[in-house]
């Protein structure tokens, strides 16, 4: 495993796409700092913004990094010289996670360098910062696990890249819809504000489109399993449910990777 990790790191160092994505990350960080008005936004928001898009960038990089092993046939070299398939799978996954974390780190450092003088300092407590870091790492691992699963099991580099990107977009729209469902109001209220500026409710009507209990439960479940919703949670500086933010991601990561390793063990390689 250690040998494979060393080989993967060497390959990564020589990979132009990887360096190009790091440059893109720097540009994104500078653009994000420049885009926001210092009066409305704190440094916390700026630092957690990138986690919203990281799933998209990871989709590209993971499918390129692993897909190229299939396209160039180099995956065969590892098996022929006697490496275990589980080691090959895990070493690729670890490198992808490393790439994801490194991109996030680069973003944070650049955003800090350019934004420290513009925005108010970080408002979060040390404890919250710690939780956010763990959550962010878990989100990155979730994305990497999903994309590695697809790319390791589907040997066509181009198609697996397309699948990963489409999957990210599907997750994005799905996640947005789920949030709309979960945040739907059960009642509509009509209000007016009197001369003293006090708000009065005049009418309460039930929302005819309010989702059923079943629909809400399904939405809750989807919300819990989608990494994009964890990204939104982090980016919106929300404190999510402990189970949803930590336990579910760990379970999902475990299930996807165990399944991936098992299937890869029996995959016929060409």
């Amino acid at each position: 495993m250690y040998k494979l990790l060393k080989a993967n790191l060497f390959k990564l160092k020589k990979d132009i796409t990887f360096w190009a994505f790091l440059v893109i990350t720097v540009v994104v960080a500078m653009f994000t700092v420049g885009r926001y008005n210092a009066e409305n936004v704190t440094m916390d928001k700026i630092l957690n913004e990138y986690v919203m898009y990281i799933g998209f960038f990871i989709a590209f990089l993971v499918s390129l990094f692993i897909g190229r092993e299939y396209a160039d046939g180099v995956m065969r070299n590892k098996i022929i010289v006697g490496h275990k398939r589980s080691d090959i799978y895990l070493s690729n996954l670890i490198i992808c996670i490393f790439i994801g974390i490194l991109m996030e780190l680069v973003y944070v450092i650049i955003a800090l360098i350019f934004g420290i003088n513009k925005f108010e300092n970080v408002q979060m407590s040390v404890y919250d910062i710690g939780l956010t870091v763990v959550k962010t790492v878990l989100v990155i691992i979730m994305y990497c696990s999903i994309y590695s699963f697809i790319t390791m099991l589907y040997s066509n580099a181009t198609i697996s890249m397309i699948i990963c990107i489409i999957l990210f977009l599907v997750m994005y729209f799905c996640g947005a819809n789920v949030l709309l469902t979960l945040h739907a109001k059960e009642y509509y209220t009509s209000t007016y504000i009197d001369e003293q500026g006090v708000e009065h409710i005049t009418n309460i009507e039930p929302n005819p489109n309010y989702p059923s209990k079943l629909k809400r439960n399904v939405a809750k479940f989807i919300d819990a399993i989608l990494p994009i919703n964890r990204s939104l949670e982090i980016s919106n500086l929300e404190n999510g449910n402990m189970y949803v933010s930590f336990v579910f991601p760990i379970l999902i990561i475990y299930v996807i990777n165990m399944g991936g390793i098992k299937l890869f063990k029996y995959k016929d390689l060409k």
Binding site: K14, I16, R68, D72, N77
Partner: peptide, 10 residues
């Protein structure tokens, strides 16, 4: 096997 397994960008 079939084609040489080499990284073309290296």
């Amino acid at each position: 096997v079939e084609t040489p397994s080499i990284y073309l960008d290296m």
